[in-house]
């Protein structure tokens, strides 16, 4: 069973600036109000691990997909479910823009339950998170 949602916005930030924002775990708390802190414990590659704290205890996450300047996904294991955060970068409507998409995908037998309990709240904040990521990426290049 799968529960999913996503939010997309277009930005004048370069793909590199967005990618840098995505892959600097220490800055996640600036883009996501629900994130208290996050750390990446090893160089970024598929299988890299880190820790993130939102509400409650810190959780381990693992990168499952890393394609520089294109996409990255990390996952958090839940009881009988996996919470994945796919991030994708695509071409924008003009040569000077890129499309940035953040998703939330919950899979597993308890996906509908976690979708209701966790996913809805995360989904509500998702547009704000994507916007802050792109704003900070733009400002980093200014």
């Amino acid at each position: 069973m799968t529960w999913s949602t996503e939010s997309t916005c277009e930005t004048t930030a370069t793909a590199q600036a967005v990618w840098d924002r995505w892959t600097t775990a220490s800055s996640w708390s600036e883009d996501d109000a629900s994130c208290q802190w996050a750390t990446l414990e090893e160089p970024l590659k598929v299988g890299s691990k880190g820790k993130v704290r939102t509400t409650g205890p810190a959780q381990n996450f693992t990168f499952t997909e890393v394609v520089p300047l294109k996409k990255m996904t990390f996952t958090i294991s839940l009881p009988l479910a996996v919470l994945a955060f796919p991030h994708t970068l695509g071409a924008g409507s003009s040569p000077s823009t890129v499309r940035v998409t953040h998703g939330i995908v919950i899979t597993g037998p308890l996906a509908p339950v976690f979708g209701f309990l966790v996913g809805r709240k995360l989904a509500r904040e998702l547009p704000r998170v994507v916007r802050l990521v792109t704003e900070h990426a733009v400002l980093a290049e200014a």
Binding site: E10, S96, R131, E135, V138, A142
Partner: peptide, 17 residues
């Protein structure tokens, strides 16, 4: 406060979206 700090092209894009 956040919007005002952005370059004009990004502000335009955000508003139009």
């Amino acid at each position: 406060r956040r919007f005002d700090a952005l370059p004009q092209a990004e502000r335009r894009l955000q508003v139009l979206q």
